[in-house]
Design a binder for these strands. Structure first.
Length: 582
RNA sequence: GCGCCGGUGGUCUAGUGGUAGGACAUGAGCUUCCCAAGCUCAUAGCCCGGGUUCAAUUCCCGGCCGGCGCACCA
């Protein structure tokens, strides 16, 4: 089945391995003419549903970003895997995990490779699989981010982004300004992301360069609520962590409202699960091969507080096509800490609050001469002390510790005072709700779920039952034969329909049935045939892919009719048109 | 990265120590041709490198690529 689909994809221009003239590269695929358009259509549908209809806005950030971004995001630490391979049995193990499991050391991930090798030797660590000695075996570093140099030399390392999200997070200060500092607001981005996978697999499912469509919805966790009413009745197929851990775990079907009320899904996640369900269904994902699966506690990413995956069943395997993650304030907090900018939003109180605040205003003309280089740090220490423990300023002297040294400062020189301050609001770190769609996997799912074979008079017909909304070629136009003027009429119709914005393919090669089958295999939902009668009555045969039914429609109605069919305003079955005489 | 299996026109495949045959598809033509019809003609192939050999697509080694299993998938 998947072999058939991959073969069809290659033959019909959906996708194929890149650079095969040079032997190919593992994990890189090229979308052919049909595939690129299908992917565009899926992206457009996503934009329409997750962005435009939700009132969010899109940005377009670089794919290369400097190292500090990924130091802050945590990717640099958690993206480096240290692997040690057993010389006896060939099994690979995470070196840091071996150390953590067999010693008192925690967070071995941040230890340099050479020290890890020493630690393995010192503790005489052995292969968990076959107990062979691992001392002296080199530890290899697998960096799953693609590294590059920005500018000449290697003084400014950069990385290809492993997710598009960071491009949104790092620009949060500008984006918040754009949103006039009002929460909530959402920012989307569609673009390439890169992961240097150890072992790319399953054609387009696990690749090294892929397209993500991400939404980062910034909310105030204390007061913002999702507009649940819009999707309250949408039914979700849920596979919770609890059910997964049972031997006979089952899916439960709940509406979005029920899932929230019963505490199964976080309300913001639930909202987007509802939006997502509507979207998957609209582009042709088979809902019998679809579920939402909650991440198990040990499975969650370093940034994620709760996470549900949308999964589709493809060739009997469940694949993740979207991650719905409640990232809390992890990312903004990290960038707030690591960068010079402010990643908070100022939230004004309804009523200003009057609060007492203890402050210091140290007399630097005293601290400086008295304590020299430590003076600045002492002043900082006094400030934190005042916030934390104002009683410390009750006596004649205040004691602070700086760099292991204790200093005594006369209280009068600290400028300590308790004042009433009017606070009009506070700085809050927004929380982030993130639906992160793997476009390539969605495209693969759409193709796989559309793949049908019919038996027609003993012959197999292969057909991609793609939704008209996403089908890359929307209509095929054929002259019954290219003679007696039928070709000219068909070419005119082709031009007119293209001018109306439709994707049209013209084909006059071979028997008419053959041409229908070609389009069936590409997934073209409709075909128009110009015959001898058309030359008399200015009408043509319109044929639908899935039913192979035909109706006769006037040429002048074609563009409106087809536009309605594409937009879903009408269906072929609803057309009030006569069947052709044959 | 490890293990097993594999790699012949666009696709599917037969076969061989003396460089290849079929089917489908594709193109041109004929046929009033509405669901893969028929006929004629045409285009197009042994993954790459090294070794053995007079000679390698075939045997051996390595690589690349693919499928599956293990590990990995933040």
């Amino acid at each position: 089945m998947s072999r058939d689909l991959v073969e069809l994809a290659k033959r019909r221009g959906y996708f194929f391995q890149s650079a095969s003239a040079y032997g190919g590269v593992s994990g890189f695929y090229t979308y052919g003419p049909e595939g690129a358009t299908l992917k565009d259509n899926v992206e457009d549908a996503w934009r329409e549903r997750f962005q435009v209809r939700e009132g969010h806005r899109e940005i377009d950030a670089p794919t290369v970003m400097p190292e500090p971004v990924f130091e802050a995001s945590g990717h640099l630490d958690t993206f480096d895997d240290m692997l040690v391979e057993c010389p006896e049995c060939g099994e690979s193990h995470r070196a840091d995990h071996l150390i953590e499991d067999n010693t008192d050391i925690e967070e071995a991930e941040s230890i340099p490779i050479s020290e890890v090798e020493d630690l393995i030797a010192d503790h005489d660590l052995r292969c968990p699989n076959c107990d062979a000695e691992l001392a002296g075996v080199p530890v290899e570093d697998f960096n799953l981010m693609f590294e590059t140099n920005i500018g000449p030399g290697d003084s400014s390392p950069g990385y290809l982004r492993p997710e598009t999200a960071q491009g949104i997070f790092v620009e949060f200060p500008q984006l918040a300004e754009y949103a006039r500092n009002q929460l909530p607001f959402g920012i989307t981005q569609i673009g390439k992301a890169y992961r240097n996978e150890i072992s790319p697999r399953k054609s387009i499912i696990r690749v090294r360069e892929f397209t993500q469509a991400e939404l980062e919805h910034f909310i105030d966790p204390t007061e913002d609520e999702p507009p649940l009413d819009r999707v309250a009745d949408v039914e979700l197929t849920l596979y919770s962590a609890e059910e997964q851990e049972k031997d006979d775990g089952e899916y439960v079907t709940k509406t979005v409202r029920e899932a929230v009320d019963e505490g199964i899904v976080h309300e913001w996640i639930a909202y987007y699960l509802g939006v997502g369900k509507q979207w998957y269904e609209s582009i042709g994902v088979d809902m019998d091969r679809f579920r939402y699966r909650q991440h198990l506690p040990g499975e969650r990413a370093h940034y994620s507080a709760d996470c549900w995956d949308a999964e589709s069943e493809v060739d009997g395997d469940w694949i993740e096509i979207t991650g719905y993650s409640y990232r809390s304030d992890y990312d903004l907090g990290k960038h707030d800490e690591y960068s010079d900018d402010d990643f908070t939003v100022f939230k004004q109180y309804d009523e200003p609050k009057v609060v007492e605040r203890a402050t210091v205003d140290p007399d630097m003309s005293y601290l400086g001469p008295e304590f020299g280089g430590a003076a600045g740090d002492i002043a900082d220490a006094l400030e934190t002390l005042a916030e934390r423990d104002r009683k410390a300023f009750d006596g004649e002297e205040v004691a602070v510790e700086v760099g292991g040294e204790e200093y005594a400062i006369p209280t009068e020189k600290t400028g300590f005072s308790v004042e009433e301050v009017k606070e009009t609001g506070e700085h809050v770190l927004p929380h982030v709700v993130e639906p992160s769609i793997g476009i390539d996997r969605v495209v693969y799912t759409v193709l796989d779920h559309a793949y049908e074979t019919d038996e027609i008079e003993g012959e197999t017909r292969t057909r991609l039952a793609l939704e008209p909304a996403v089908a890359p070629t929307f209509v095929g136009v054929f002259p019954l034969m290219d003679k007696d003027g039928m070709g000219e009429v068909a070419r005119e119709i082709t031009d007119d329909l293209r001018a109306a914005g439709l994707d049209v393919t013209y084909d006059d090669s071979g028997n008419i049935g053959r041409r229908y089958r070609r389009q069936d295999e590409v997934g073209t939902p409709f075909c128009v045939t110009v015959d001898y009668e058309s030359l008399e009555d200015d009408a043509v045969t319109l044929r639908e892919r899935d039913s192979t039914e035909q109706v006769r429609v006037p040429i002048s109605d074609l563009d409106d009719l087809l536009a309605d069919l594409q937009a879903g305003e009408t269906t072929f079955a609803e057309l009030d048109a006569p069947a052709p005489e044959q």
